[in-house]
Design a protein around this nucleic acid. Structure first.
Length: 373
DNA sequence: AACCCCTTCAACCGCGCCCTA
DNA sequence: TTAGGGCGCGGTTGAAGGGGT
């Protein structure tokens, strides 16, 4: 058996650190290729017998370059994929003449070299989309990325961690829950929170399913220019996906209603707190819900035969709705105080902001027709 | 100029899912 | 049914660069 010290001293040894000695893992830590234990044992005994370096003993098989990619490497990878498509990633480096593992090539391609990637500063609209989608989806970066054209999940994740998360924290909003940090909820509030959590869970699942379908279609579109036969297979796969299931009633319209109410809440508060006389061309709140003093108030609507009414009735009288949009509403309200009081540009931007949320849900949910009537 | 600290983000790690033989 | 191949995903790391002292 190979000396443990030798294994540990070799930084490129192809097994997970600390696991290679006992051969209790079949996972290569460099390229994630998997090997049979018998094969690994054979490789190790060959190495021990040869008394050579690991690279030599294994035929230079694991002498991968790591770290930052050079322009020459980029060019090689780009040229190969443009001509042949990527095909099997583990096989690509040898064919393309690269001393990289397949996984490194795949990451370089998907996060940097792909022609459909937009690089550079995130726009205000993109920032808002990320915050909105993060409130709905949490750290599902790939799902979020499907709603931001030409942005990668890695880029969005980095931007969130280095910019947006800190910004929300600075404004007193928990970047995980998207709620003000000082929340303490009474039983009635918790009840509503549970209902909204259910909505968010459904929306999250729906967006995830949609993201999957979108990803497949996008991948097929990209590949078509390189490898028409492979693309056709993926297109067939996408076409074979079953339609997204409708959300459970009564959550379906209520979800939209809550969003609409949030928009209305923002509008009402802005007008009220600024003593503004903005009228006419500005859109009025459309929700059946009322709003006052930064609290989304749900009145007792009484008996109703429709399911929406039943849900609302269950919320009873007047309660604070601690949903994920409230933090955003507060964020916007704070912004209005700090920077843009009585500024119509601000109004228009944020009116669009709420319209975007509604459009987002509307456009991605064909089965969700309209807010509750 | 030199050093330190902080931020950014490309790249890597480890896990788990899906598919196939 | 199971093992292995392939790959996507979220979390983490560390090199590079900028700013302050």
């Amino acid at each position: 058996m190979l000396d443990q010290a030798v294994i540990n001293s070799y930084p490129r040894f192809p097994f997970s650190k600390g696991q290679c000695g006992g051969i209790n893992s079949s996972m290569c830590s460099i390229c994630l290729c998997k090997y049979r234990k018998s094969e690994m044992l054979k490789m190790l005994s060959e190495l021990a017998a040869s008394n050579a370096s690991l690279d030599t003993a294994l035929g230079g098989r694991f002498a991968f370059t790591r770290g930052t990619w050079t322009p020459e490497e980029d060019q090689k990878l780009l040229a190969y994929i443009e001509e042949h498509g990527h095909g099997s990633w583990p096989a690509l480096p040898a064919k393309a003449g690269l001393q990289r593992c397949g996984k490194s090539c795949r990451l370089r391609w998907t996060n940097y070299l792909r022609p459909d990637i937009k690089r550079g500063k995130f726009s205000l609209q993109e920032e808002q989309s990320i915050i909105q989608l993060h409130a709905l989806l949490g750290n599902r970066w790939s799902a979020i990325a499907t709603h931001l054209p030409k942005r990668t999940d890695n880029e969005i994740k980095n931007y969130w961690n280095s910019h947006l998360k800190k910004r929300l924290t600075k404004m007193g909003i928990d970047p995980v829950t998207h709620k003000p940090k000082t929340d303490s909820l009474n039983p009635g509030q918790l009840k509503v929170a549970a209902t909204l959590s259910h909505i968010a869970q459904w929306e999250s699942a729906r967006l995830e399913a949609e993201a999957r379908a979108t990803r497949i279609v996008r991948e097929s579109t990209l590949l078509r220019s390189f490898c028409s036969s492979s693309a056709q297979l993926i297109l067939n796969k996408a076409n074979a996906l079953p339609p997204l299931p409708p959300p459970p009633l009564p959550l379906q319209p209520l979800c939209l209603d809550v969003l609409t109410a949030c928009k209305g809440a923002w509008l009402t508060t802005l007008l009220k707190e600024n003593g503004s006389t903005i009228t006419g061309t500005l859109e009025a709140p459309t929700s059946t819900l009322n709003f006052s003093d930064k609290q989304l108030l749900i009145p007792n609507l009484g008996k109703s035969n429709n399911s929406i009414g039943e849900v609302k009735e269950s919320m009873e009288n007047t309660v604070l709705v601690p949903n994920f949009m409230e933090g955003l509403t507060d964020l916007l309200i704070e912004n209005s105080h700090d920077h843009l009081d009585h500024d119509l540009n601000y109004f228009e931007e944020n009116n669009n902001y709420w319209n975007n949320i509604l459009n987002l849900v509307n456009s991605t949910s064909p089965s969700i027709g309209s807010p509750v009537s």
